[in-house]
């Protein structure tokens, strides 16, 4: 067996209850409950039978089309979602750079928000107090730091959020495509800071659509589709496999359409077109 991994995911499954969403009402649930209809088709498996390891010092890339379960996987690695099946073992402090400005308390000042979000992240009060000056300096929003956050521009909010989220170097860094916000100057500084975090992290998981830059950070990558891992290997191979798959799929779609046109049928509308290219989306 290999040495203990930084991240060890085994047969992970995350399941969403389709009947228990934002719009669930008591009435609907009661009727369901009375009817005792607890069938398997109430569930949607966003992830299923996902198994992989990330060794110490390794950076893993996660590729795949929209809806493949990449973000769900990051949320689970960050401990925000709990596995419904299988297990996840993570060694060390995890940080996801998902925390870009959401969760700010609008009525209180930026300074108070730093303390509040630090407390939410579970960072010790004393550590947070020591970090605060450097967070403020990095965010570089001037006297606004003592004004209520509702007066901030969206750029200022993003800068403060980024500054808080990256203030503590995590053991395990989870990145979801957030490789820079704000103006040119801030983007350069934030790229620099992410490089620092990458250098200090014991392991990295990077979710991206950018097939060109993934090789720069990650030596190994997995391709996900419909909640499972489809391919795992060195990044260049995985990228090649992915591109090949998309090419074949496009060719097949074109073929189908040609056949339809030949038969005089209208062209179908395809909503699930996958588009791996230089830009996200």
């Amino acid at each position: 067996m290999a040495p203990p991994a930084a991240i060890d995911v085994e047969d992970l499954g995350i399941r969403y209850n389709l009947h228990l969403t934002r719009r669930t009402t008591l009435k609907g649930s009661l009727m369901e409950w009375v009817g005792r209809r607890q069938r398997e088709d109430h569930y949607f498996w966003a992830l299923r039978h996902v198994t992989f390891r990330v060794a110490h010092g390794e950076a893993l890339g996660i590729l795949g089309p929209n809806g493949a379960g990449k973000s769900t996987l990051l949320l689970t690695l960050a401990g925000i979602l709990a596995p419904d099946e299988g297990s996840i073992r993570v060694q060390g402090r995890v940080s996801s750079l998902l925390t870009l400005g959401a969760g700010f308390e609008m009525e209180v000042s930026g300074r108070e928000n730093i303390a509040l979000i630090g407390a939410f992240m579970g960072i010790r009060h004393r550590v947070m107090r020591e970090l605060t000056p450097s967070i403020i300096e990095f965010a570089d929003i001037g006297p606004f730091i003592d004004a209520p956050v509702r007066t901030y521009s969206s750029g200022m909010r993003a800068r403060l959020g980024f500054s808080i989220a990256t203030a503590i170097a995590p053991d395990i860094l989870l990145l979801d495509e957030v490789l820079g916000t704000g103006d040119e100057e801030f983007r350069a500084r934030s790229q620099q800071r992410i490089r620092e975090l990458v250098a200090r992290a014991r392991a990295i998981v990077l979710v991206t659509h950018d097939l060109n830059s993934v090789a720069e950070y990650c030596s190994r990558s997995v391709l996900m589709e419909k909640g499972s891992i489809l391919y795992e290997g060195p990044t260049l191979e995985t990228v090649e496999f992915y591109k090949d798959r998309v090419r074949k799929r496009k060719a097949r779609l074109a073929e189908e359409q040609a056949a339809r046109e030949a038969a005089g049928l209208p062209a179908p509308v395809t909503l699930d077109e996958i588009a791996p290219s230089g830009q996200p989306g």
């Binding site: 925000i80 996801s96 925390t99 959401a102 969760g103 939410f120 992240m121 579970g122």
Partner: peptide, 11 residues
């Protein structure tokens, strides 16, 4: 009311 935060930070 804290849905945003709950989806971003584990606490």
């Amino acid at each position: 009311a804290r849905g945003n935060l709950i989806r971003q930070i584990q606490f």
